[in-house]
């Protein structure tokens, strides 16, 4: 019986230890956490610029959106099959939120 080389399941090893997906997920989770946290922070800051004119209302609105966006964005970024795509999604939201802070008059 001949088996194609590409279909043979081989455990990937690095430094003698098997590299389980869990190890990669830790670093992915940390990266996603940093990106999403920054996005949530910029949303809170930006709400003071693009939100209601009353400071209390703007702060509250920003925090409402940030608290709701954090888990949604995290799950979206962590849930994608390709880690890079997840990072790009979270990063893009963060950049848009940052631009809203910087550019809004």
């Amino acid at each position: 019986m001949t088996v194609k080389a590409s279909t043979v399941v081989r455990p990937r090893r690095s430094g003698g230890r098997m590299s389980s997906p869990a190890h990669r997920w830790i670093w992915r989770a940390v990266a996603v956490f940093v990106l999403v946290w920054m996005a949530a922070h910029f949303i809170t800051l930006g709400a003071l610029k693009w939100g209601p004119s009353v400071r209390h209302d703007a702060t509250v609105l920003g925090q409402m959106i940030a608290v709701a966006a954090f888990p949604l964005l995290f799950l979206l970024a962590f849930g994608t099959r390709n880690p890079l795509r997840g990072g790009i999604i979270a990063g893009a939201v963060g950049v848009v939120a940052l631009l809203a802070v910087l550019l809004h008059s």
Partner: peptide, 12 residues
């Protein structure tokens, strides 16, 4: 979380 959000996401 929202009620205590000022400790996590302060508006500064």
């Amino acid at each position: 979380t929202f009620i205590r959000a000022r400790t996590l996401f302060p508006p500064v």
